[in-house]
Simulated scan of single mutants.
Amino acid sequence: MESLNSLKDHLLILEENLLKPEIRTSQIELKKLLADEFFEFGSSGSVLYKDDQLVDGIGIVKMKMSDFEIHLLSDNITLVTYRIFNELKNQYSLRSSIWKFKDGRWKMYFHQGTPTDF
């Protein structure tokens, strides 16, 4: 098992990758990061599933992440929390993701975005 700090650094990189246009628009890259069972409660209120997201990708965003933290749920499952500022919508949201280590890699199983005023 990775040290807590290296795990935090690794998951931060994976979350930041999911903000990059070249990842968000690539079915190949999304398949590497999202578990087959992945689903999301979007900040728009919609529920999305991996198969839906892989058709057209997630869409281009310009977001800044802050307050990144990890919360170990077990040896191979971690809850990640952070804040996002969407520069295009001028909107803040709280974010959470559940990552699971399986078959030698971390994959996202769940994500939620909740709008907030700050």
Rank of each mutant, 00 (worst) to 15 (best):
T81K: 10
K100W: 00
F101L: 03
L19S: 13
S97H: 10
G45E: 10
G113R: 07
R105V: 08
L18V: 01
S43C: 12
T25V: 02
L54A: 04
G113K: 08
L4K: 14
I58H: 05
L73D: 03
H71W: 05
L30T: 11
D51C: 03
F41H: 11
F41A: 10
L73V: 08
G57D: 11
I84D: 13
R105N: 14
F41S: 06
G113A: 06
T116W: 03
L19D: 14
K102Q: 15
E37L: 00
G42I: 02
V47E: 09
F38W: 07
N76K: 14
K31W: 01
V61L: 04
D67Y: 06
R83N: 15
Y82A: 05
S97T: 13
Y82F: 14
Y49V: 09
Q91Y: 04
L14Q: 14
S96L: 02
L18Q: 11
F39Y: 14
P115G: 09
N76D: 15
P115D: 04
L34Y: 11
F101T: 03
W106K: 03
I58W: 13
K50G: 02
P21M: 00
E40V: 03
D117V: 09
W99T: 02
L12A: 07
L19P: 09
M108D: 05
L34V: 09
L94H: 10
H71Y: 12
D52I: 03
I98Y: 02
L12S: 10
T78Y: 03
I77R: 10
Q53S: 13
R24D: 11
I77G: 01
D67K: 14
M63H: 03
Y92Q: 08
L33H: 09
Q53L: 15
L4C: 01
D9K: 10
R24F: 09
L33A: 07
T81W: 01
S3F: 04
N5R: 07
I84L: 14
P115M: 06
L14P: 04
L34C: 06
I70K: 02
K31V: 05
G113P: 09
L34N: 08
V80N: 05
E40G: 04
E15D: 13
K32Y: 02
S46Q: 14
L54E: 13
E15Y: 10
Q27W: 01
S46L: 13
R24S: 09
V61S: 08
G113W: 10
S96F: 01
F85Y: 15
L12M: 13
V55M: 07
F68H: 07
N17P: 00
L94A: 06
L19G: 07
G113I: 04
D52E: 14
K50H: 05
H111E: 03
L72S: 14
T25D: 10
S97P: 07
R105A: 11
N5G: 00
I60M: 02
D51R: 12
D52V: 01
S26F: 06
E16I: 01
